[in-house]
Write a protein that binds this DNA or RNA. Sequence first.
DNA 1: AAAAATTACGAATTCGGTTTCGTTGAATCT
DNA 2: AGATTCAACGAAACCGAATTCGTAATTTTT
Lengths: 334, 334
Amino acid sequence: MSTIYDIAKKVGCASSTVSKALNNSKEISKKRKAEILAVAKEMGYVPNSSARSLTTKKSWSIGIVFSEDLHIGLEHHFFSGVIQEFKKSVEELGYEISFYSKKIGNQSLTYLEWFKYKDLDGILIVTVDVEDENLEALRQSKIPVVTVDSGLINVPTVISDNFQGTRMALEYLMSRGAESIAHIAGPLRSFAAVERLEAFKSVLSSCGREESVFVEASNYDYKSGKEALYKLIKLTKDLPDAIYAANDDIALGAIMALKELGYKVPRDTSVIGFDNIELTRFTSPSLTTVKQDKRKIGTEAAKLLIEQIDKKTERTKGIIKRIPVELIIRESTK
Amino acid sequence: MSTIYDIAKKVGCASSTVSKALNNSKEISKKRKAEILAVAKEMGYVPNSSARSLTTKKSWSIGIVFSEDLHIGLEHHFFSGVIQEFKKSVEELGYEISFYSKKIGNQSLTYLEWFKYKDLDGILIVTVDVEDENLEALRQSKIPVVTVDSGLINVPTVISDNFQGTRMALEYLMSRGAESIAHIAGPLRSFAAVERLEAFKSVLSSCGREESVFVEASNYDYKSGKEALYKLIKLTKDLPDAIYAANDDIALGAIMALKELGYKVPRDTSVIGFDNIELTRFTSPSLTTVKQDKRKIGTEAAKLLIEQIDKKTERTKGIIKRIPVELIIRESTK
DNA sequence: AAAAATTACGAATTCGGTTTCGTTGAATCT
DNA sequence: AGATTCAACGAAACCGAATTCGTAATTTTT
């Protein structure tokens, strides 16, 4: 309601003086400042963010992009945790978050246009759909960007250590006597899926296992996990000793499919997931899984982004920050 | 980058004319308009949201407040779904959402100040902590507000039909032979918890059961559910035939506590929850529960809010929209 | 005490749009 | 043809801040 002009009028000074008082400039006397601050408080003055960011070119807000095509959203078990933590981190510094949405008014904006439209200070990309060609322009631009779980070249990325996680999972399975291990990969247009598949192949071959059996799930969800398991069964004559799934949802789907086929987990085969979503403690059997540290991922992403924003340092070419994972052993592996 | 002034210069007209072309005003000829639009496109013009909302007093953004004290956040099973759907609904109309956070820059703002600061068009309150006195000012104001799952008087509210749900749950339990039924209430500073408790008492007494046994969980989570069950056991000599929990997390906690005490569910007692979070399908035993329609709740809240924003109608005094619930029968009840 | 350097403040401009209102030229009417 | 209406455009004010720069008042220096 009340503006700096109202305050100026009441105090009997110029608006510029009020502005100085409010922004602890040194161009003002203690006395004047105290006087102005008192009046401002009395009038219930609140600055206007639009006016402020119009002149300062700083919006104090950070955009978040996530690929809805990959079924990522606020409800996603894992990413909602990452975003929550990211939000908390940047809020401590005074930033707020803003979600990308295609429709702005009547027209639809690309990520880059959106960035300009909103005068954003930076962007967090949560997972990347390789097929989203809109991202390319973002990647080539000079604006502060950080990604989680993606492989955009020349963009700082925070991602779980998929190699370490895969190795831990597979070595554990082998230590428990698994001879044949199959992999249900996530959709290979996601970067993490590719990494886990690569790691799977690499670990197996380094252990002297020649062929690596895997199928690709069409999505990171329960249903796709079920379907993938049926595909897998068709592919192999015998049930493998163990199955390494690209994430927990897929693993749970696979277990359900195994049940439908009359198999018991872990008696007939072990299943191991990735993520450690809350669910996994409660299922029966409870799920052995590789735990991702979503809190750490969120805070690290925030850190990497704020550094770009503050230090005006150009994006460090292709920084990639790997967050350690942890193997959580439960009942789905023998 | 480029502004309407740049366009004006290039076209050779006034900025006001450009503005008119961009906002399909009728005060412009087809020819001029086409010409301007072409140049705008060529220059990659994108409007600036700050400048726009500064003059129009319309920010096209809606604020979301949720009480972190109640452990509500982006990760909450139920509310994240509501928010996701709300977001989708308002985005279709060109609005974006913005989350309240205490720290703006260095100072902390009340909800009302935040509303002014950001020039918000409306506010969605997701659950209300009765003890949050900041809300009172919001309630008394004339700004467009809608709440979900709360009981703010004179504020439109969208909420599940807790009476219907409770009745369905209890009647089902009784139809299956339960004589004694206890209730684990949610934290009673939340409105839904109070409603469910009231409904519990009312249904039981209308069925001729005199005393209604209940305990209050300190939070809506698993741990509180466990603790509450231990409290309950101390309170009653015998295990009740059935337990009606205020939400799924509490129910799951209670089941775990029962397990620890050597009881089996549903053999020794039935347990029924509220929400139908995804988890409930996977637990063992899977949980019988009252399903809340989070999609519907989200869209209805959006509708109620947009109506206030658009029609400039004052808040209809105390409108309360009840969304039907559904009983999902699974294994935790006999 | 006069000169020089500081300090405290205000006038004016700017950010990027929207909107009002006056003016001009063309089209319509009598 | 002269009077009248209407369509198309531009000048200017405004939204609410931040910032630059000039000036007057004050303090410090010699």
